[in-house]
């Protein structure tokens, strides 16, 4: 496969010797225009890779912060067409920042798998994370996505044991997303010692970068995780900034998110990746 924007970005950061800051915000939260403004401001604030949530009515793996973000977006009229349009608009002004769409399978299935993949590719999407599509269902979306040149990023979890890891890594591209806890997004803080061991275990089985997410909220946490992983994902903390600034105009929410991203980015830029054991 040709090198994707995700591959390129992680390769650049490896040269620099620092971990990627991977941001997550929900498309259309709190409304289309503000959400697009937030996306446009993230790269200059320090986001290296951007995950964009596709809102779903029943986000079974998400905690309250991201549940509410999805509800705000849906209430404001967000749907899959608008999410893809948002990527298109972003991409017209930024050719380099990798975009990963993250969400659940049903809205894609209803959009039509083939049509979705073609439209996502055309809009400038680089990768997909679909929470409820395990490797057992690869033929449905993962394999067709790879054929179109999209990365399919798999979640590995603390319950993914050595027997299962090869199956999870097979067909994974771009990076591996290590879920740092057994739980939902934005829940308890991960135990960094265990995370380090898990990341090293995964790295022994793959050349792909490993990003760690679920429960990373502060600069300090991000730095500790950034010492052992190739990327740190921050999501719930960012959408919580939106939730806390709904009273103001869109600019207030946008500024709150970019401020936090800047802090995280500054923190991570001073973090040097330890060579994995």
């Amino acid at each position: 496969m040709t090198q994707s924007r995700i591959d390129t970005r992680f390769a650049e950061l490896k040269e620099e010797g620092r971990p990627a800051l991977v941001t997550f915000v929900m498309a259309g939260d709190p409304d289309y225009d503000t959400s697009l403004d937030i996306l446009k401001s993230l790269p200059s604030a320090g986001a290296d890779v951007m995950e964009i949530g596709m809102p779903f009515s029943d986000p079974m793996a998400d905690g309250p912060a991201i549940q509410l973000a999805g509800q705000r977006a849906l209430k404001a009229g967000q749907d899959m067409h608008k999410t893809l349009q948002m990527v298109r608009e972003f991409r017209s002004g930024d050719k380099d920042t990798p975009i990963v769409l993250m969400g659940y399978y049903n809205p894609i299935y209803i959009y039509g798998n083939e049509q979705f993949l073609a439209d996502a590719r055309e809009a400038g999407v680089d990768g997909l994370i679909i929470v409820d599509l395990p490797p057992e269902a690869d033929e449905e979306l993962c394999v067709p996505a790879i054929k179109l040149g999209l990365n399919f990023i798999r979640l590995a979890t603390p319950t993914t044991d050595d027997d299962r890891l090869p199956q999870v890594l097979h067909n994974t591209s771009g990076f591996v997303y290590y879920v740092s806890i057994t739980g939902i997004t934005g829940a308890a803080a991960p135990n960094t010692t265990k995370v380090a061991a898990a990341v090293n275990r995964i790295k022994r089985s793959t050349e792909l970068p490993v990003a760690v997410g679920f429960g990373v909220k502060s600069v300090e946490q991000a730095q500790v995780i950034g010492e052992v992983a190739d990327g740190v994902v921050v999501g719930s903390a960012l959408v919580s900034e939106i939730a806390a600034n709904l009273d103001g105009n869109g600019e207030t929410a946008c500024r709150a998110v970019t401020n936090l991203v800047s802090e995280l980015a500054v923190g991570l830029r001073s973090t040097k990746l330890k060579k994995s054991a």
Binding site: A61, Y105, D132, E136, T159, V168, V179, G183
Partner: peptide, 19 residues
């Protein structure tokens, strides 16, 4: 694989899959 025709299956997060 848990299918009745096209229906059924196992569409769950990876954390639950081993269980």
């Amino acid at each position: 694989e848990g299918y009745f025709g096209i229906f059924g299956g196992r569409y769950v997060a990876e954390t639950l899959m081993p269980l």
